Amino acid sequence: MKPIALVTGATSGIGRATAIKLSEMGYRLIIAARREDRLNDLKALLSKTTEVLSITLDVRDRKAVEESLGHLPEEWAAVEVLVNNAGLAAGLEPIQDGDPDDWDRMIDTNVKGLLYVTKAIAPGMCSRKKGHIFNLGSIAGKQVYANGNVYCASKHAVNALSQGMRIDMLPYGVKVTQICPGAVETEFSLVRFHGDQHKADNVYTGYEPLTGNDIADCIASALSLPQNICINDMVVMPKSQANSMYFYKQ
């Protein structure tokens, strides 16, 4: 029987690329995301190579997470790989001008959503003493940048949670890997700027950013290592980006 992987935020960017990569690696896929139409399209694509269970889900909804992921069908329950990918940035203003609705959206998705999903899946991994959890962090979880305030705080929380999860799951043989990308050209900036395509495009002008496929390859690489190796933390930058603040643009 093929192993099972679960990817949240699976319908775009890093999540979509990771789901496709895992299907190519021989995993059965549970894909979860908010947008049902995109979810159906991705399921149709993945079903050409593997078995797929799709779940329309907003990770901010604790009850929905508990009901769906906490009570998976028996044939889908033994999740071996969890990719906590669902996350977003909303707004780019100094703290005094920030929108509390944006703050709630980021904290509820990036922090609480990750916790809800992990709580639903991790106990089974621990009982089977087998599993690998990937948390999608960010360079923003390592270094704060101007106007990033709450987004950076949410990703610093992911950084701390990843370290804590690694410690807590150590006796059970469950691996925990945090992936911290720099600039990745996905829908990230479009969401951050509330649909302003011009602002979003400007973020990636003058250099070659990472792609969702690049991060999917990093996850695949960590999964391909021998069982006695765990990559705790992986910081991944475009060649033209040194850290959260310094870019070389032409």
Results as ranks from 00 to 15, higher is better:
178 Q>W: 01
178 Q>N: 04
208 E>L: 15
212 G>N: 14
182 G>W: 00
166 R>C: 15
176 V>N: 00
180 C>W: 04
174 V>R: 05
207 Y>H: 02
204 Y>G: 12
170 L>W: 12
207 Y>E: 04
186 T>A: 12
181 P>R: 02
207 Y>A: 00
204 Y>I: 05
172 Y>C: 10
195 G>T: 04
197 Q>N: 12
220 A>H: 09
163 Q>G: 14
228 N>W: 03
202 N>V: 10
216 A>C: 07
190 L>R: 11
166 R>T: 15
177 T>F: 03
227 Q>M: 01
203 V>W: 01
165 M>L: 15
210 L>W: 06
221 S>F: 05
169 M>A: 05
216 A>N: 07
228 N>L: 05
195 G>A: 11
194 H>V: 06
167 I>D: 15
197 Q>W: 12
228 N>M: 03
172 Y>Q: 00
175 K>A: 01
217 D>Q: 11
168 D>G: 15
207 Y>N: 00
189 S>T: 10
217 D>F: 09
223 L>Y: 04
200 A>S: 13
179 I>Q: 02
171 P>S: 10
223 L>V: 06
192 R>M: 12
189 S>K: 14
191 V>P: 08
188 F>I: 13
184 V>I: 09
194 H>N: 14
178 Q>K: 03
163 Q>N: 12
223 L>D: 06
181 P>K: 01
200 A>Y: 05
212 G>W: 14
168 D>M: 13
177 T>N: 05
168 D>E: 15
172 Y>I: 04
167 I>P: 15
188 F>S: 11
183 A>K: 03
177 T>H: 04
211 T>A: 14
193 F>Y: 14
205 T>G: 09
178 Q>T: 08
171 P>I: 11
172 Y>P: 04
218 C>M: 13
171 P>H: 03
186 T>P: 06
219 I>F: 06
228 N>P: 01
170 L>F: 10
183 A>T: 02
197 Q>R: 13
174 V>N: 10
229 I>W: 08
183 A>E: 05
211 T>I: 14
169 M>C: 08
209 P>H: 00
188 F>Y: 12
173 G>L: 08
211 T>E: 15
226 P>I: 01
177 T>R: 00
172 Y>T: 02
190 L>Q: 10
176 V>R: 05
169 M>V: 01
192 R>A: 14
209 P>C: 02
174 V>F: 07
168 D>W: 15
203 V>Q: 05
210 L>D: 07
202 N>A: 15
222 A>L: 04
181 P>F: 01
189 S>W: 13
216 A>I: 05
219 I>V: 06
170 L>S: 08
213 N>W: 14
229 I>H: 05
211 T>Y: 13
180 C>M: 08
229 I>A: 12
227 Q>T: 00
185 E>T: 01
206 G>K: 06
201 D>G: 13
211 T>D: 12
217 D>P: 11
173 G>Y: 03
199 K>V: 04
226 P>Y: 11
201 D>N: 14
172 Y>N: 10
202 N>D: 14
216 A>Q: 12
212 G>V: 09
185 E>P: 00
186 T>G: 14
175 K>S: 05
227 Q>V: 00
170 L>E: 14
200 A>H: 06
225 L>T: 07
223 L>G: 09
175 K>F: 02
220 A>L: 09
175 K>C: 04
164 G>D: 07
217 D>S: 13
175 K>Q: 06
221 S>A: 05
195 G>Q: 12
